[in-house]
C-alpha cells in the first residue's frame, strides 16, 4: 500500500508555454524513483483532473508562471473535490507572490514552490507528505 512508488502528475494549465520548470521537476521526481506523468501544454482543469483520476496519482503539481494561478488552482481543486479525489495532494510552483499564499492554502493547495527551489526540496516534501496521507486515507 504505502510501499509502491509515489505517483505524481505534473501539469501545465492554461495558455502559457513556459515549460522549463515543469519539465525539470518531472525529470527530477522521476530520477528520485517516483512515477511521473507530465501532461504537456495547454491543459484545461478538466483535462488535468481526468488525468489525475485515470492515472490514480498521489499528487498533482501545477506549474503556473502567467499570473493566472488563483484561477487554475481554484478550478482544479474544485474539480478534484467534485470527482471525489480530494485525497490527492495538490501542490504547485511558479511565479506566485507571497500575498497569494494564504488564499491558495484556503483552496486546498498544500504547498507552492517559488523560483529558486531546489528539486531536492520538492522530492523531500513529497516523500514526507504522500506516505502520511496514504496512511491517513487507509485508516480513515
Amino acid at each position: 500500500m504505502s510501499d509502491h512508488p509515489i505517483r505524481v502528475l505534473i501539469a501545465k494549465p492554461g495558455l502559457d508555454g513556459h515549460d522549463r520548470g515543469a519539465k525539470v521537476i518531472a525529470r527530477a521526481l522521476r530520477d528520485a524513483g517516483m512515477e511521473v506523468v507530465y501532461t504537456g501544454l495547454r491543459q484545461t482543469a478538466e483535462m488535468i483532473v481526468n488525468a489525475a483520476v485515470q492515472e490514480d496519482v498521489d499528487a498533482v503539481g501545477l506549474s503556473v508562471l502567467s499570473g493566472a494561478h488563483m484561477h487554475y488552482f481554484r478550478e482544479v481543486s474544485e474539480l478534484l473535490r467534485q470527482r471525489g479525489a480530494d485525497d490527492v495532494l495538490l501542490f504547485g510552483g511558479g511565479i506566485v507572490p507571497d500575498q497569494d499564499l494564504p488564499a491558495l492554502r484556503e483552496l486546498g493547495v498544500a504547498r507552492v514552490f517559488t523560483p529558486g527551489t531546489s528539486t531536492q526540496d520538492v522530492v523531500a516534501y513529497l516523500r514526507e507528505t504522500v506516505p502520511t496521507r496514504r496512511r491517513a486515507e487507509s485508516e480513515g
Binding site: G14, L15, D16, L65, S66, G67, A68, M70, H71, Y72, E75
Partner: peptide
Amino acid sequence: PFARGEVGKC
C-alpha cells in the same frame, strides 16, 4: 472561454 483567468495577467 480559454481566456478565462488570463485576461490582462501577464
